[in-house]
């Protein structure tokens, strides 16, 4: 049966090349190829491929602009990159052969490919980058003193709130990583279970459901990252002012 841990296909010294790493590398190849082809053939009068890419990028840029306003140029690359990578990783698990083609080891099927986001290492890595980038952007945008004032204060109430903020930053990592991991991992188990019960037609609605889940999860992760970035790049006192204004 499926295990939380990704399965090692081979080893490079101490480094385990797992099926999720192979999946990640395949996604990398797709992204690199798409980016290089785009960069090489980019023109003022676009072709079909450039047009599609432009539509997608412009759509996401406008979404990011509506949330982050003036900070869009800094936040947009994170938002878009998380979305592209997670979407491709989520959907890669739905391709025929992924999770099903492999070899048997100790009476257990070891698939050669497994969706990258069904590995906690990937989702945790993404969550760590998301939170770290948020804090780096925050320091760069509002300055170190303003950034620290969010967490540390001489006022006991604000200090208590600051401690809660620190805890929330840790929970952000946990929630982002486990939400994505849980959804995709559970989806793959469901598909595997349904396929093992009846392989013809029955998995189809679940596959469609997983397509939607993959898209939604990619959007949730990238949107949350963008929202966190937008919040943390706004000075603390500005946010308090805005809250007071909203109350009145």
């Amino acid at each position: 049966m499926f295990s939380f841990q990704s399965e090692a296909i081979f080893h490079l010294g101490a480094f385990r090349i797992t099926n999720t790493i192979i999946d990640t590398l395949l996604i990398d190849i797709i992204i690199f190829a798409a980016s290089f082809v785009l960069a090489k053939n980019i023109k003022l009068v676009p072709g079909l491929y450039q047009n599609i890419v432009e539509i997608i990028i412009q759509l996401f840029y406008e979404i990011a602009e509506s949330v982050s306003e003036k900070k869009v140029k800094k936040i947009f690359p994170y938002f878009m990159s998380f979305f592209i990578f997670i979407l491709l990783a989520n959907w890669s698990g739905l391709l025929p052969g992924v999770n099903s083609i492999g070899f048997f080891e100790k009476g257990k099927l070891v698939p050669i490919l497994r969706s990258s986001t069904s590995d906690l290492n990937t989702t945790l890595g993404l969550a760590l980058i998301s939170v770290a980038a948020t804090h780096i952007l925050s320091i760069k945008t509002i300055g170190i003193s303003n950034y620290l004032s969010r967490y540390f204060s001489l006022n006991p109430i604000n200090l208590f709130i600051g401690i809660l903020e620190i805890i929330s930053e840790i929970t952000k990592v946990v929630s982002l990583s486990f939400r994505l991991f849980g959804n995709i991992f559970a989806g793959e188990i469901v598909l595997l279970t349904v396929s093992s019960i009846f392989a013809v037609l029955l998995p189809l609605p679940f596959l469609l459901l997983e397509v939607v889940v993959g898209l939604v999860q990619a959007l949730v992760f990238s949107m949350l990252t963008m929202a966190f970035m937008a919040i943390l790049t706004t000075p603390h006192h500005d946010m308090l002012d805005n809250t007071r204004k909203a109350r009145h």
């Binding site: 980016s35 290089f36 990578f85 590995d119 290492n121 993404l126 760590l128």
Partner: peptide, 20 residues
């Protein structure tokens, strides 16, 4: 694996930013 995934994403992030 965690470190590899972090480095991998940072590379993807750079490539996408630079070439897309």
């Amino acid at each position: 694996l965690l470190g590899a995934q972090i480095i991998n994403f940072l590379i993807i992030f750079y490539i996408l930013k630079r070439f897309a």
